[in-house]
């Protein structure tokens, strides 16, 4: 009797582990943290790309109902692929698109904008990458949608924007209105 209980217990444990590991296999290894807006310091300071003035995130997201913060760099290849999507979004006119230029050289960044067009209403620079950490980013490109009135983060996209993400983004804006 004791033997049977032991057997059942062991087999049960094995089966449970099996299903947990099986489920674990289908999880993606890419992890995106759940960033709460309460954790963002909207007063962090950054310098503009085209002038030497300092600004805060608070001032940056004052225009329109929604802000889209896009972290980019001229050396980042996926950013090039993503650029047309940003231009497209800008043409909608509903979004206040803000660029954060990540660990870049000023010359290259300006060249990049000149070459591919400027979807951003304002661009600030983040030469040490510290501002991006404040936003909970890992690298480039990354895009964050913010509701300006409630100061909440609606969505965060890691990696370049694509058709799917674009559709999702438009959907969120529509629903929020």
């Amino acid at each position: 009797m004791v033997k049977n209980i032991k057997l059942i217990a062991v087999v049960f444990l094995v089966i449970v582990s099996f299903f947990i590991l099986l489920k674990g296999l289908n999880k993606t290894n890419n992890y995106s943290p759940n960033l709460k807006s309460s954790n963002i310091d909207f007063n962090f300071k950054a310098k503009f790309l085209y002038s030497n003035e300092e600004t805060t995130l608070h001032e940056l997201i004052n225009d329109k109902d929604f802000s889209l913060i896009n972290i980019w760099a001229s050396w980042c290849l996926p950013c090039r692929d993503e650029h047309p999507y940003l231009l497209n979004l800008n043409s909608l006119g509903k979004l206040n698109i803000i660029g954060i230029n990540y660990k870049d050289s000023e010359v290259n960044a300006k060249k990049f904008i000149k070459e591919l067009g400027n979807p951003y209403s304002k661009i600030v620079v983040d030469p040490s990458g510290v501002n991006s950490i404040e936003l909970g980013a890992y690298g480039v490109p990354e895009t964050i949608l913010i509701n300006n009135n409630s100061k909440t983060i609606l969505k965060k996209y890691i990696g370049p924007l694509d058709d799917k993400k674009l559709a999702d983004l438009k959907m969120i804006i529509k629903n929020e209105n």
Binding site: G129, V130, I133, Y138
Partner: peptide, 13 residues
């Protein structure tokens, strides 16, 4: 990596 380097700067600050 860039991430780690920025992180170290941040920690220092």
């Amino acid at each position: 990596s860039d991430f780690a380097l920025s992180m170290k700067i941040l920690i220092q600050s």
